[in-house]
């Protein structure tokens, strides 16, 4: 059985690279049969997940990395955003440690991910990092381009 195609991006936990992830993901989504609106939705959802990792995953004194994996398939695009940072108890999420700067986001990151993507799964545990799976279904089964 052939493995799915994977595109992997690794960024440091610095806010200036979230836009780079957005560009890359929109390029991948553009190769599939997504509408402009779908691509914008995907960009926001991935940015929200990546920004959360930048904000919360690592302590202020440590540089950490965030791994983004894209798996384009015939009927969906799966995106996995994974960090190996401090994680949290999903059943009992606590207020994150104070960051260097207070970044406003109204706590809407997860709301946007759930509203704009077709499936969202999050797994996390204290000191074991956090993984977010996002899936967007392709509107039709045809792909724009083939190898």
């Amino acid at each position: 059985m052939a493995d799915s195609t994977k595109i992997e991006i690794k960024i440091p936990n610095q806010s200036e690279y979230v836009g780079v992830v957005r560009l890359a993901i929109s390029g991948i989504a553009n190769r599939m049969n997504f509408s402009v609106e779908d691509i914008e939705d995907i960009k926001i959802a991935v940015s929200e997940a990546s920004a959360n990792a930048v904000r919360y995953a690592y302590t202020n004194t440590k540089i950490g990395y965030i791994d983004i994996t894209c798996i384009p398939e015939k009927d969906q695009l799966e995106i996995i955003i994974k960090d190996s940072g401090i994680g949290f108890d999903l059943k009992n999420p606590h207020k994150p440690k104070k960051q260097k700067e207070e970044v406003p986001n109204l706590g809407l990151g997860l709301v946007f991910m759930q509203s704009l993507m077709d499936k969202v799964n999050m797994s996390s545990a204290p000191n074991k990092g956090t993984t977010v799976h996002l899936i967007k279904k392709v509107p039709s089964l045809s792909l724009k381009s083939k190898n």
Binding site: R22, S47, A51, P104, N105, L108, V111, F112
Partner: peptide, 13 residues
Amino acid sequence: NYMDSTGLGAIAA
């Protein structure tokens, strides 16, 4: 051409 919850947060503040 792009805004997410961080931008909304800044505007709301």
